[in-house]
């Protein structure tokens, strides 16, 4: 019997596949986390999001 997967589980699994991109984005923020502005790490985030979207689809 297939168990129902909650959306958050699917989301978490997809995000888990992008730990490398997540780390790059995290480092970008943490490098100067006292001066964070909107879209400070936009390029890093878009890479992370592309990876996540790809991982979310393939599953």
């Amino acid at each position: 019997m297939p168990t129902k997967t909650r959306p958050i589980e699917k989301f978490a699994t997809a995000v888990g596949k992008c730990s490398a991109e997540g780390a790059v984005y995290g480092k970008c923020i943490v490098a100067d986390y006292k001066n964070v502005t909107k879209d400070k790490c936009l390029t890093e985030f878009l890479k992370l999001k592309d990876c996540y979207l790809a991982a979310y689809k393939t599953r």
Binding site: E21, G22, A23, G26, F45
Partner: peptide, 15 residues
């Protein structure tokens, strides 16, 4: 928002 959760996960792990 999923964007914020996605970003928070990366920051949580790094910080």
């Amino acid at each position: 928002q999923r964007d914020a959760m996605l970003a928070a996960e990366g920051i949580y792990r790094e910080l």
